[in-house]
Design a protein around this nucleic acid. Structure first.
Length: 332
DNA sequence: TATTAGGATGGCG
DNA sequence: CGCCATCCTAATA
C-alpha cells in the first residue's frame, strides 16, 4: 500500500477530530511496531490495517471508509485473484481434512490479530477521550439514548462544528436521543440530504462507545475502583471483558462488528433483525479455534455449538431457513 | 459433498 | 452445572 495519503484524506470530510487524526498520521510508527513481532521476515505491506481499526466504530453504513479502502487497495478488490496479503482473510488454505500447509499462517494470524487489537485499543482510546471531552464541554451524557431534545441539539451543533457541516439542527428539532438512535441512514437522509452520512456515522461512534462502556461497567465491578484506564476498557470490552471466557455468540458478534476484517467470511444479511451469513465456514471455524486454542476446530463442531443456542434462545435459524444463515434472537 | 439437526460423552472452570 | 469440544447418525439440499 504505497499511497497512504488516500487514507488520510477522506473524500468529503476529515472524519475525525484532531487527536484522532494525529494518531492516524503516526501510522508509520505504528507500522514499525506492528511488524516487530513478525518473525518470518516477510516485510510486505499491510493493507487494510488502519481501516480495520475502525470497523468497530463504524458500521458498514460508513460508506466513505469503504470507498477509501476500495480506491486505495484497488488491486485486490477483484474477487477472483485475491493475493494472500492478509492470511486471516485468505480462504485458499482451508482444506478441512489433511492440509499440511495451514500450520504456518496460524502463528502469523495470531500475531497479526494481536497487533491489530493493540492498534485498535489505541485508536479507540483516543476516540473515547474525544467523546469525554465533548461531553464535558456540552454537559451531556455519553449515551445518546439518554439525551433529551436539547442534548440532541447540542450534539448536532458540536458535530457540525467538528466536521464543518452546514447547520442542520432545525431539521432534528423534535427528536430526543432515543429517536435519533433509532434512525436509519435513510431517515437521516430525509432530514438532511447533505450531512446524513457524516451525522449517522458519527452517531454510530457514540452509540458504540456507550454500548461498550455499558457492557463493561455493567458486567463487572472489579475495575470500577480504578476507573482511570480507558484503553483497557475498550480493548477488552468486546472480547475478554470481565475475564470470562468468551462465548461463541460473542465471538461471532465481534467478527460481525468488523466487516472490513471479516466481511469476507461472515457478514450481516439484515443487521436490524440480527440475521447473518457465514460466507466461509472453514475460515470462521479456524478463527474460532484460534481464539479458543482449539487447533482441531472445524465448522462441524462450531455449528454444533451454534445449534446448542437454539434451545437457549440465543441464536436460531431465520424464518426462511438458508444454508449457513443464522439469526440472533435478540439483536442489539 | 456440504450442511443441518440433535443425541451422547467428557473436560474444564 | 454451564459451555463447549468432540464424535456420531440420519436427514436434507
Amino acid at each position: 500500500l504505497g499511497s497512504d495519503s488516500a487514507v488520510l484524506q477522506p473524500p468529503h470530510s476529515t472524519g475525525f477530530t484532531e487527536s484522532s487524526l494525529a494518531l492516524l498520521k503516526r501510522e508509520d510508527g505504528l507500522e514499525m511496531v506492528d511488524h516487530k513481532p513478525c518473525l518470518d521476515g516477510s516485510d510486505r505491506g499491510h493493507p487494510g490495517l488502519y481501516l480495520s481499526c475502525f470497523d468497530m466504530l463504524f458500521t458498514e453504513d460508513a460508506a466513505w471508509l469503504v470507498r477509501v479502502s476500495d480506491s486505495s487497495t484497488s488491486t485486490d478488490i477483484g474477487p477472483r485473484l485475491e493475493p494472500c496479503q492478509e492470511p486471516e482473510q485468505c480462504p485458499v488454505i482451508d482444506s478441512p481434512g489433511l492440509g499440511a500447509s495451514p500450520l504456518s499462517p496460524t502463528l502469523e494470524e495470531q500475531v497479526e490479530e494481536r497487533s491489530l487489537e493493540q492498534v485498535q485499543s489505541l485508536v479507540v482510546g483516543e476516540v473515547l477521550k474525544d467523546i469525554e471531552t465533548a461531553c464535558k464541554l456540552l454537559n451531556i451524557t455519553p449515551d445518546p439514548m439518554e439525551w433529551n431534545c436539547g442534548n440532541v441539539q447540542k450534539w448536532l451543533l458540536w458535530t457540525e462544528h467538528l466536521y464543518r457541516l452546514p447547520q442542520v439542527g432545525k431539521a432534528f428539532h423534535d427528536l430526543d436521543g432515543k429517536d435519533l438512535c433509532s434512525m436509519s441512514e435513510e431517515d437521516f437522509r430525509q432530514r438532511s440530504p447533505q450531512c446524513s452520512e457524516t451525522l449517522h456515522a458519527h452517531l454510530d461512534i457514540w452509540k458504540s462507545a456507550a454500548w461498550m462502556k455499558e457492557r463493561c461497567s455493567g458486567g463487572e465491578t472489579r475495575m470500577r475502583g480504578t476507573s482511570q484506564k480507558q484503553h483497557k476498557l475498550w480493548s477488552e470490552a468486546d472480547s475478554s471483558c470481565s475475564g470470562q471466557p468468551i462465548h461463541l455468540w460473542q465471538f461471532l458478534r465481534e467478527l460481525l462488528l468488523k466487516p472490513h476484517s471479516y466481511g469476507r467470511c461472515i457478514r450481516w444479511l439484515n443487521k436490524e433483525k440480527g440475521i447473518f451469513k457465514i460466507e466461509d465456514s472453514a475460515h470462521v471455524a479456524r478463527l474460532w479455534g484460534l481464539r479458543k486454542n482449539r487447533p482441531a476446530m472445524n465448522y462441524d463442531k462450531l455449528s454444533r455449538s451454534i445449534r446448542q443456542y437454539y434451545k437457549k434462545g440465543i441464536i436460531r435459524k431465520p424464518d426462511v431457513s438458508q444454508r449457513l444463515v443464522y439469526q440472533f434472537v435478540h439483536p442489539v
